[in-house]
Design a protein around this nucleic acid. Structure first.
Lengths: 122, 122
DNA sequence: TCCTTTGTTCAAAACTTATTGAACTATTGA
DNA sequence: TCAATAGTTCAATAAGTTTTGAACAAAGGA
């Protein structure tokens, strides 16, 4: 089972910007960037928002071509499509990530993620 | 009479991206960028969309801090706030403009603008 | 096998954005 | 002063987005 992703040439600037125009998704991308490409589970976000809503936003990011979601057992592993985005729109993601890095919401996700991961194995 | 603009430190990444996430506004910015900082009137856009709608989109760009609108007689002169945006979000606008430069909608605006300006003085 | 974990899908509600036309304002030029 | 020009504001509508809970699915472990 594999989820649908646009390929690099199907990614449009408009879709990317619209996806990142939402504060929640921008913070998710900021959080993913801080994790330096380590695959991240949806679980990391569950103390941050409702399961359904996180699923919705992650789907938007995937459909815009910003993230890649791989199925791994019952989990999904999410990574930023940095290289692909960088060759399609040079400099764009770098500048966004640099500016998004210290958004308060990113900090919130980090804290929520620690909590969620701690809760899992008590 | 002068219109309200956010000052540089009030401009947020989220607002900028949300404003540029709309294809019409992205094309307007692409068009403004091609004009290399020459002030541009709303009139340039009138054959492209309805007056009301253009006014709406230009207000969104102004409120997001992307453009500056100066009143000059009965006209408004619109310019990109390139320097300010560049110091606030280094590299962001450059990468967006580079990618937006050859959007089909930018061409449409250019054609519509030529028409509109020709119609004005027959 | 059955239960738990990890997420998705669906339908509904709440909210926001985009688009339109009619009425308006302010400035300029005759 | 009067009319024309350039654009805004308002109210209404159409269209799209976000959020929620309930029900579902698929994999893994006891």
């Amino acid at each position: 089972m594999t989820l649908p992703h646009p390929n690099a040439d199907q990614i449009t600037l408009s879709n990317v910007l619209a996806a990142l125009g939402d504060p929640t998704r921008l913070a998710i991308v900021g959080y993913l960037a801080r994790r330096e490409g380590q695959p991240t589970m949806c679980l990391n976000f569950t103390n941050f928002g409702s399961k359904t809503n996180i699923s919705y936003h992650l789907a938007k990011l995937r459909e815009a071509g910003i993230t890649r979601t791989e199925v791994s057992g019952t989990s999904r592993l999410i990574t930023l499509r940095r290289d692909e985005l960088d060759s399609r729109f040079p400099g764009l993601l770098d500048s966004i990530i640099a500016a998004a890095a210290d958004l308060p919401m990113v900090k919130k996700i980090e804290e929520a993620a620690e909590e969620a991961l701690a809760q899992r194995d008590p």
